[in-house]
Design a protein around this nucleic acid. Structure first.
Lengths: 233, 233
DNA sequence: ACAAAAGTGTTCAGTGTACACCCATGC
DNA sequence: GCATGGGTGTACACTGAACACTTTTGT
């Protein structure tokens, strides 16, 4: 039995290769409050770490690329199709798993609100606020921290914020994304000017109706969605 | 025999896990010219890609972390001990290797000039200019391109430049590092001011003698050397 | 009319860049 | 003395932050 393997036995086996994904979505938690970052986790149904929450993941199938494996696994466990998917890091510490050694190649994903609304929530799949996940299985707390760090960094210098939004959005909604991710408020006037200066934000001639005040104009993002990692795809 | 395996056979085997490293050092190539980026490569002595140059690498031993594996492999193949070592990316495309599927976790390293001078150059280990490596084995050209991209990015916003330099250095030497990596000249006056404003650059009371002109002051870097990736070690 | 968000204008401090200039050394 | 790189001073354009102000809607 693998789980009972002693150390010398374990040293002889090749490390197992697994794929996991940290998934982020923005959700308005209350009625009147600002949206915040959420992520889906799956409950462990086996040892080790049985009944603790963990990142969705699984083994790498032989006939699919790493990214495809992440997307498929994500789809199978949570029903989600990400709008942004990028490799985060390969975790390969010796004692990540108590039995067989596991090397995990971790991806991180962003999903749009309509997609996140479709996500099925079962007894073994539940959404958590990103800043309140509690104790997770394996080294997954460390992985979530790193993913959050990367998200906060990347939102500041790239255009991933739009992966959190639908096709059309108000500039205030974009600002809410930044405020939720960065955890601080931003000056609406200056933020607006910055976005207007960006070439890949196009104004539509539509306005968001139904609000309590002056209807804001809707905009569209015309840049590409996927990650741009220099010479990589 | 692994290399003769057909596709359906190959699909059944678990992917192999390997570690490779892209190593950068700065070398003055001529007498009077500016230093440029170089990297050591190893010659393939077996199929596939026999006789082509490739990144140093090898399989992951069961009892060492990913980073330790990279450092050890690097030491064994090139004799180098890096001053900076950081994970680059996990490459896992289906057709990276013609026979068994291989997932490579790639690191990148920077070595100081005294260390690079010690490096043994044999018939199967040779140094190349980073911008003229020719055709490499596997997808290693793509990997080198990505490592170069990361290096150029990171040099602009972090302090890795000092991993290319010895304990004491002139500000002009630091500038030469930036110019070699970024591939453009920088204003000496403004560059100097920027560095003087950095808190972890300390002036010594020594001067570099033997130059053709006014002897420049030597400085010391007091910051830490390793990669700082947010919540990761 | 009033409140509140949408949207515009203006000021100000900090920063990067260009470049003129002085300093110290070898030849 | 002269050439050259070391090192300092300074002006200017650009940018981000602060904030006053106008516009447009719902109530």
């Amino acid at each position: 039995m693998v789980y009972a393997a002693n150390v010398s036995e374990r040293r002889r086996q090749p490390p197992e290769l697994a794929i996991s994904t940290v998934i982020f979505a923005l959700r308005g938690d209350g009625e009147e409050s600002r949206p915040t970052l959420w992520m889906p986790l799956v409950r462990r149904t086996r040892q080790p770490y049985q009944d603790l929450w963990a990142l969705p993941g699984g083994p790498l199938s032989a006939a699919e690329s790493l990214q495809d494996a992440a997307a498929r696994n994500l789809q199978e466990t949570t029903g989600l199709q990400p709008d942004y998917l990028e490799q985060l890091y390969a975790f390969g510490g010796l004692d990540r798993s108590p039995a067989q050694r596991v090397v995990s190649i971790v991806y991180w994903a962003l999903v749009k609100p309509d997609e996140a609304a479709l996500a099925r929530e079962t007894d073994n799949v539940r959404w958590f606020r990103a800043d309140g996940v509690g104790q997770l299985a394996f080294d997954h707390n460390q992985i979530v921290d790193y993913a959050l760090w990367r998200l906060r960094n990347k939102v500041a210098y790239s255009s991933i914020a739009y992966a959190f939004l639908g096709e059309k959005f108000t500039l205030a909604q974009v600002r809410e994304v930044y405020e939720a991710v960065l955890g601080k408020t931003l000056d609406p006037a200056n933020f607006r000017r910055q976005l207007r200066a960006a070439p890949d934000i196009q104004a539509t001639d539509e306005y968001l109706q139904g609000g309590r005040h002056r209807p804001p104009r809707l905009f569209r993002y015309t840049g590409s969605a996927g990650p741009k990692n220099g010479p990589l795809a």
